[in-house]
Design a protein around this nucleic acid. Sequence first.
DNA 1: ACCAACATTTGAACGTGTTCAACTATTGCT
DNA 2: AGCAATAGTTGAACACGTTCAAATGTTGGT
Lengths: 249, 249
Amino acid sequence: MPNDDGDAAERAVEDGSVTRSLQPMARRQTKPAIIDAALGLFEERGFEATTMRAIAERAGVSVGNAYYYFASKDELIQGFYDRAMEEHAAASAERLAGLTDLTERIVAHADSWFAALGRYHQFATQFFRVASDPSSPLSPFSSRSAPAREAAIAGWRDVVEGARTGDGSPAVADRLRSELPELLWLYHLGLILFWVHDGSADQAASRLVLAGTAPVIVRAIGLADVPELAATIDDLARLVATIRPMLAT
Amino acid sequence: MPNDDGDAAERAVEDGSVTRSLQPMARRQTKPAIIDAALGLFEERGFEATTMRAIAERAGVSVGNAYYYFASKDELIQGFYDRAMEEHAAASAERLAGLTDLTERIVAHADSWFAALGRYHQFATQFFRVASDPSSPLSPFSSRSAPAREAAIAGWRDVVEGARTGDGSPAVADRLRSELPELLWLYHLGLILFWVHDGSADQAASRLVLAGTAPVIVRAIGLADVPELAATIDDLARLVATIRPMLAT
DNA sequence: ACCAACATTTGAACGTGTTCAACTATTGCT
DNA sequence: AGCAATAGTTGAACACGTTCAAATGTTGGT
């Protein structure tokens, strides 16, 4: 098994030029080379049309070597996902900069996700097919994707924390502020599910769903303070609390 | 390509005993034989562990012949799904017989689904992995599964139509009665999505989610008449109307 | 300098889903 | 009865993801 995060290869580079010049057989950065080859081919041909043999050939390694670094073809997808999420985080931060309205911030964050992944829609479809397999390590609920999940929730936390009312006070009541990011993340998963199945041109339908549902979500957040609904909300909170420990993935 | 629904084989049988006795090479019912073999093996070993060669061998045909009737291994799943849905319809009808309360009827219908598919949970997981692929004909939104989808929605229509209030009048206002079955079907899809990912013993968590959310759904239905929410509900209805024609699957 | 442990790399081989040209059986028509 | 067209059937062959024993490179200790 390789070092878990390509540390070995990176360390070798950090050893500096002396080490490198003393070793004629320059240490290739095999793992990133494989990722680059895979992503390039995925974009060119799609996921299923890309063979492990083609990836290995473009990366200049043997097939077996690719499997030394990635347990399966599916795992190579993680590289695509990580890269896309970086793009999304950057694009979202830029669009959120001037916005204070919660609804607008939600729309901006989710819409920049659509923008970031739009060009990969067809390929992303195959990605989420794999990810929607509960037994896959790429499932959003798996322990292996916990870092990605937490990063995504943190993104939604930024959306919530940055929201202000007219007088500059936080737009979301304290009681909800801690739970809301995760709920919005679930809402986003739902949007993604729709987006994946969205056959409309440029996924326009998904953007409409976003624009149409975000205000409803925000209105529902406001409703959480209505006393008549408090009992129901408490029921749901208790339900979540009961169920969460039952789910060991 | 075979006749679309095994008509050829069925017609041959309907030709009667004369035809059969005059044809020493008795016409095998190849298609059902393949389905039976496949379902048996799926139950015994799971979906992925079952090979097309094993299916063909048990059915007494060649591999190529299986592909004459089923375009892919995935398509064999439809047989499992159809059979399971028959079981569900029967079990649900039985449990709904004495119930008039809408919440109880919703729970009974969905819970009998859990009961019907519980023993197949692991295998069903692989089934829904395939079904959640938007490009798969098994996707619940695909045109190929339209009959199954409509049958499922019809099941939810029974749930709604049979619900009575204390005085024996329909429990659901006219305005909602036509749309509600499809919404409940979507709710059920959500439950199934959770169930598929549900790693708790005997999928107990899924049943709790059902028991906990069904009353909320029913309460929300009642809220549809509150004037303050009418505008929002109209917005959502308009959104659905706008989007539906955009989705050509 | 040497060796033992470890990390990396190789490519042939395996089992899989799927395809296809060839073959056989059946039907419809005269 | 005979013939052309169609339906059904076969199994070898293909391309793929994956595995594995073996070969090679690298490191750290003496």
